[in-house]
Structures are given as structure tokens and as C-alpha cells.
Amino acid sequence: MTENLGTKYRFATVTTTYITLTLTSVLGVFFYMSQTLNVLYLLLFFVLCFLICFLFIQSRLEKLIYRKIKDIYDEVSLLEATSFSKKQISTDMETLTKEIGRFAENKKLEIETLKIRENYRKEFIGNVSHELKTPLFTVQGYILTLLDGAMKDKKVRKKYLKRAEKGVERLIYIVKDLDMITKLEVGGLSLNKTDFDIVKLIKNVFDLLEMKASKKHIVLTFDKEYASQVLVYGDEERLQQVLTNLIVNAIKYGKKDGTIEVSVEHLIKNKVIVRVTDNGEGIEKEHIPRLFERFYRVDKSGSRKEGGSGLGLAIVKHIVEAHNEKIYVESQFGIGSEFSFTLEKAK
């Protein structure tokens, strides 16, 4: 505190000392030459001169610096004038330089953050546009073909209507996922938490996805035989969606004749961790931090050959976080990936 005060008033103190000594010396010489020298009066003059000069110089400096810095802030429009107080003023130039440097650094970070968010926003809009226009154009193409005369051929009509139906289903799928993730982000989706057997739920997901996995000759398996139940507390329906999305993702990017292994491990007294491991393509390190963003795809090609809404992992993250749990990902490119999330044990 003493050091701060000394720094704040250093300039005024030193300047006042020089002025007071100079004036006192001149007055002393005058008294001496007039043979009326009085040491007591000289000391009194020194004290009064010092106090008056110090107060005057300090107040004028604070007003000058405050006005100049406020003008700078107003000109760059980076700080509202109302947020700038006279209490923040220091007459020490080193302190002022540090304060302005800190201010500039903070603003630089804010600008960089805004630029990153703007890039994400542009990329997100582009991805949404791409995901929606592909099925829309597909449906439009088939309908226009039918209107141009293909409707008269029953076989062509049936085939094109079925393809148009698939395009509409994909649109509905994307819109439903968008609606769900919006509700999750704003906290508008309530969870129906109960006690249930996570091993049984995983088996159900295996049964649902067995045919999809068999098309790529991928085996869905547990890491070991679970003889007894593993009871957890959560929303069974939403957690089924989490497991389904993770396993579907592993199937999409898994290698032919590969394996997807799911394990349930006890972490601490009241937690378990569920791991979904595959020996597929793997993910490069630069993509991992953005995996859970909406519509973010590791494969930047426009083909979208694997389909999906591009929202699967984003939904997974939001559902897990809605349970106040954590999700993790580890991956080595060319070797495989592991997605894992924690759950609370049943009480």
C-alpha cells in the first residue's frame, strides 16, 4: 500500500521539492542580503510552499491525465466513459503504461475471441445450409422429373417417390436433431431420471445396431462377461441415444471386419465410466477439440457419404452434461478412438 502511494505521488513530490527548495533558497538569499534572515520564517515558508505546490501540481496532473486518457478511450470506442473513474488515475508514467498495456492486451484477446466466434458462426451457417439443401434439392429434382412426364410410368413414379420420401425423412431427421440440441442448450429438455441397468441398455443398443454393423462386418462386443447388473441413475431414454450415437459413429468410421468394444468400469464410490472403443480410422489431434461442435465434420469433403445430421456428437455432449457428467475422447490416427462418459451409480 505504501509503495503504491509512493508511486502515485512520486512525480508531484519530486517536482514540489525542487520548486520549494528553489524558492526557499531565493527567499533565503533575499533575507540574507537584506539582513533580516529569520530561520523560523524560512522553515514556515518551506512547509507552506511545499504543501501548496504539491496539492496544486498533483490535482492539475490528475485532471490533465484523466482528460487525455478519457479522450483516448472515447476515440477508440473500446471503453464506455462511464466505466472510467478518476479513482483509477495515477500520475506515475510507469504505472500508466502498465495499465494501458493491460487494457490493450485485454481488448486484443476480446477481438481475437470475436474473430474466432465469427468464423465458427460462418462455418456453422455454411454447414446448416449444406445439410439442408442436399436433401431439398434431391426431393425437388425427383418431383420436377415426375412433373415433366415421368409420372406416367408407374415403375419410375414409385421409385422416384420412394427416393423423394428418403430425402424428406433426412430433412425431418435433421430438423428433429436441431430442435433437440436447441432444447438441450437452453435447458428446455427435462430429464426423467430413474435407476436402471446400464449393461442391459447396452445390449439393447447392440441388438438395434447389429444389422447396421454386420454390413461392414463389424463385431459389437463387451470387454468381458457381465454376470450381474450395473445399476446407474439417469434418463434411460436419453442415455440410450448417447450410446446409439456413439456406436453409430464408430460403425460409420470403423474399418471393415473391425470391432467395437463397450466396457463399464467402476471409477469411485458413486461413479462408473462407460467406454466405447473402436479400431477404425482414428482422429487427428487438430480435430479433437472441435468434435462436439454442431455440424463439425472431420471429413471436409462435400460428399457427406456417411450421412447423418452432423449433430450426433453435439447431442451426446449436451445429454451427458445435462446429467452433470463428463465426456472424454482419446484417439490415435490410423489406430482407433475411444469415447467415454461418466454416470452416477444408483443409490
Score class of each variant (00 low, 15 high):
M1W: 11
A12I: 05
T17N: 07
Y18F: 15
L23Q: 06
V26C: 08
L27A: 10
V29A: 15
F31Y: 13
L37C: 13
N38K: 15
N38Y: 14
N38S: 14
V39M: 15
L40C: 04
L44K: 12
I52N: 01
S59N: 04
L61C: 02
E62M: 03
I65E: 00
R67Y: 02
S77W: 05
L78Y: 10
L79P: 03
S83G: 05
S83L: 11
K86V: 11
I89P: 12
S90R: 06
S90F: 08
D92P: 03
K98R: 11
I100M: 15
I100K: 03
I100W: 11
G101V: 01
G101E: 07
R102H: 09
E105M: 12
K107W: 06
K108P: 01
E112D: 09
Y120P: 03
K122T: 03
F124K: 08
N127I: 00
V128A: 08
E131C: 03
L132H: 01
L136A: 01
F137S: 04
Q140D: 00
Y142W: 02
L146M: 05
A150Y: 06
M151G: 02
K155G: 00
K159A: 08
L161S: 07
K162A: 10
R163D: 08
R163V: 01
V168Y: 11
E169L: 09
L171W: 07
I172L: 10
I181K: 04
G187Y: 12
G187V: 07
F196H: 06
L208K: 15
L208W: 07
M211T: 07
S214F: 08
K215M: 12
K216E: 04
L220Q: 02
F222D: 01
F222L: 05
D223C: 00
K224E: 13
L231W: 13
V232W: 15
G234P: 09
E237R: 14
R238A: 15
L239A: 00
N245T: 01
N249E: 09
D257P: 07
I260R: 06
I260C: 03
S263G: 06
S263I: 02
E265A: 09
N270A: 07
K271H: 08
K271V: 02
V272H: 12
V272M: 11
I273K: 14
V274Q: 08
R275V: 03
E281T: 10
E281L: 13
I283H: 10
R294V: 03
F295C: 08
V298G: 05
E306C: 04
G308C: 05
I315R: 10
Y328Q: 08
E330M: 06
S331Y: 07
Q332M: 14
S340A: 12
T342F: 07
K345W: 02
K347G: 12
